[in-house]
Design a protein around this nucleic acid. Structure first.
Lengths: 167, 167
DNA sequence: CCTGACTGTCGGGTACGGTAACAGTTACCA
DNA sequence: TGGTAACTGTTACCGTACCCGACAGTCAGG
């Protein structure tokens, strides 16, 4: 579209889609972490719990693969959740080196509350838009997200900052 | 909209606007930093240079206020840029405690290249959308960004990760 | 049975973020 | 005029988080 030798356009940052996405993404992650903090978990814990909900008994390695992180990080995440009483590391039925990760009843009670917080937070973020505009925005974002190479629902920044909301 | 006592909706993460924004924002910031790295600067340096372009001679404190960060962080950012030969700390004409920050010729030569990289990066991110959809998306994002409380063009995550692309 | 590969975990080096404090300078105000 | 309070830019410090390799225990295949 732009001439390959032309200098960049002189638009302000606030009109560039990449800046807006980065700015809004950071703000969204930050406020969501704040909303979730009273539950004693961080956004990455929430994502892990959501994954565990459909598929308990997985290995830590399997979970790490699905979320695209290193097994070492999974140790820390599960330590947090176990300390919080939300997951159990049971013996794996067939592989004695591995753990089978299961949700506790407390986690099953917590998840609906967390989902409601997520809904409220989303509604708050999208306040300026009506229902039609929200639909168009989400559809557009999904199309952009598909191109990033990350599997659906996998956050690229997951490999860090697990303990911020834990203490 | 949702009943206040209802459990949260059971949508996957990939369909929630707040998750999509956070995911895309992180990915966008990451790839933009990569595109910018060959120039020897990070995204926050780019933002600072853009601000300096319209308004040289500012004090470090003034710049920190405009960007919403602490003066100490500005010291680090300017250290990087000065080391890179892009800014000069001159004596302030009226206040001998303060520095007057000026761009160098190298910075004025670098900025068009950086802007072109930003344009290309934006185009790359928005590939799946046509011109109309891009316009609608940017307009919607701008309306959401206005509600965050951050001044236009101010990135909330600016207070960190300055040195990632410097070395 | 024995070697190689895998699982989950632990310690150590390193870099980062935020706090407190500093000298130099200005502004206020009696 | 003098003296105190506030401000600028900077440094030193400390607790924390992240990355790396290494480890015991266990499985799989020849």
């Amino acid at each position: 579209m732009a001439d390959d030798l032309a200098p960049g356009t002189d638009r302000p940052l606030a009109g560039r889609a990449n800046f807006l996405l980065s700015q809004l993404g950071f703000h969204t992650a930050q406020t969501f972490a704040t909303r979730l903090a009273p539950l004693g978990i961080a956004p990455n814990h929430f994502g892990l719990l959501m994954h565990l909900e459909r598929g308990e008994g997985s290995t830590q390695q399997q979970l790490a693969d699905v979320l695209g992180i290193h097994r070492k990080v999974m140790v820390g995440l599960l330590d947090d959740l176990q300390h919080r009483g939300l997951v159990e590391r049971r013996r794996h039925p067939t592989d004695r080196r591995a753990h089978a990760i299961h949700l506790t009843d407390a986690a099953r009670a917590l998840l609906p509350r967390a989902r409601r917080i997520a809904d409220q937070h989303e509604d708050e973020i999208l306040t300026p838009l009506d229902a039609d505009e929200r639909g168009h925005l989400i559809a557009a974002l999904q199309r952009l997200a598909e191109r990033t190479g990350h599997p659906a629902g996998v956050h690229p920044g997951l490999q860090s900052s697990a303990r911020s909301a834990t203490r």
